[in-house]
Structure formats: C-alpha cells, structure tokens
Amino acid sequence: MFYIYCPYCGEHREEEEFHPKGQAHIERPKEPEACSDEEWGNYLFFRNNPRGVHHEMWVHAVGCRKFFNVTRHTVSYEILETYKMGEQPTITADSQKQPREAAAVSHQEGVRA
C-alpha cells in the first residue's frame, strides 16, 4: 500500500488513483514567435533528469482529476511534499543540502507508508 497526499482532496489516497505527468514548473514562452529554435526546442523536448530532488506534475486521475506538484527523490522514490498548481516548492535540491530537519519543519508530509 502506497499513499499520496492530494492537496485538493486534502487527504492521503491510494497510489492507483494517480498518474505522473512529467517535470513541473515548465513555463510556456510568452512569445513563441520570438524564440530561437534552440529556446523552443528546449521548451518542448528537453527535461531535467536529476539524481535526487525532482519536482514533478501528477494528476489525481481517479478522484478530483486535478493536477498538482510533487517533490520526489529520484533515488529513494520518497515523496517529500505535494503542493497545488501555482505554488512553489518548499523543499528543493538546495534546501536538501542543509540538515533534513531544518527543511522539513512543520511541512505537510507528502507520503505515508
């Protein structure tokens, strides 16, 4: 059993109800016409593949059907936090370099085993 916290439903739900949807926080260029081929290509096709903390978009496919963001560790698969669209992560690769406790203080746990 693997539970993920949906920030819209406000509770932990079974993993089977969710789908991952790739890297989060990708912003569409404001003026596509003004982009170079390289800029447009980077926007469309190139994604981060970090070893460690990664911000991803997930959808609560069977449930509220809302998209939200997940901060996940790509080595341990641990979900460090989940947060709504439009919000910023509180846990990042940089914040993780400091002692874990300091970064995770008073934050909603993303996953419960």
Binding site: C9, R13, E14, E16, E17, V62, G63, C64
Partner: peptide, 10 residues
Amino acid sequence: GVTTVFAKAT
C-alpha cells in the same frame, strides 16, 4: 463521498 476505484472501474 469519494471518487475512487471499485473493482477496477472508476
């Protein structure tokens, strides 16, 4: 009331 999976069906 929740939307969830019942016998593999939504």
